[in-house]
Simulated assay, not measured.
Amino acid sequence: MTKKEDYISLSDEALQNMSDILKILAHPLRIKLIFILAQNPATVSDLLKILDVRQPNLSQHLTLLKRVKLLKTRREEKSVYYLLSHPEIKDLLEKINEITKEI
């Protein structure tokens, strides 16, 4: 059981940051992106081959994930690779998946 002190010690800023990340993750395509990028960094072209989405839509989702610092980019010559800033986010999503199977 969670003690009252456990959540009271979280600052309003920390709670807001957590809420922002959870809101950003609350889309099936962004969850797919996390799982794909957890395996290997990928370019937009790579991701377009895997996913059935249009480029502007994909770019919008990548931008949102990057804005909350879940993704970062790496440039190699003319290519820009997207990769997870925090690979442990995949573990969180896997845990959520386990919970949803039990509900």
Rank of each mutant, 00 (worst) to 15 (best):
K78H: 12
S11D: 10
H61K: 05
H61Y: 11
V53K: 09
Y81M: 08
I96L: 10
L92Q: 03
K49S: 11
T2K: 07
R67D: 11
K66P: 02
L71A: 04
Q39F: 06
M18C: 04
L47Y: 03
S85R: 08
V68W: 14
I8N: 02
P41K: 15
E13Y: 15
L37S: 05
K95Q: 08
L29G: 03
I36W: 06
I89C: 10
I34R: 05
L62E: 00
L84R: 00
S11F: 13
A38F: 09
L25G: 05
R67V: 01
D52K: 06
K66E: 05
P87R: 06
K3V: 00
V68N: 11
L64R: 10
N97E: 07
S45D: 15
L64W: 15
I103S: 01
L10Y: 12
V44R: 09
L51F: 09
S45C: 11
S85L: 12
R54M: 00
L70N: 02
K69W: 07
A38W: 09
N57C: 06
K95I: 08
L22T: 01
L33M: 04
T2D: 06
K4V: 03
I89D: 13
E102R: 01
D6H: 10
T63N: 15
I24T: 12
K101S: 10
L58R: 04
N40Q: 12
D20K: 14
E13D: 15
K69Q: 12
I8K: 05
D20P: 12
K4M: 08
L92P: 00
K4N: 07
S85K: 09
L33W: 00
I21D: 09
L58K: 05
Q39T: 05
K66D: 04
T100P: 00
Q39V: 06
K49H: 08
Q60E: 10
E13V: 15
Q16S: 13
K72V: 05
E102G: 00
I24E: 14
V44Q: 13
S59T: 06
M18A: 09
T2F: 13
K3C: 05
E77R: 04
L29V: 04
I34K: 03
Q60F: 10
I31S: 04
K49E: 14
I21G: 10
L51W: 01
Y7I: 13
R74Q: 14
T100K: 04
D12M: 14
L65K: 06
L48V: 01
L70M: 13
K101H: 11
L15A: 13
K23I: 11
Y82R: 04
H86Q: 07
A38V: 03
H86G: 01
L92A: 02
K78W: 14
E102H: 01
R30A: 05
K78S: 14
L84D: 07
V80S: 12
E5D: 06
N40M: 08
I103P: 01
R30C: 03
H61F: 09
Q55I: 00
D12A: 14
K101V: 09
L70P: 00
H61G: 04
L62S: 03
V68K: 11
T73M: 15
P87M: 06
L84N: 01
P41D: 13
K4S: 03
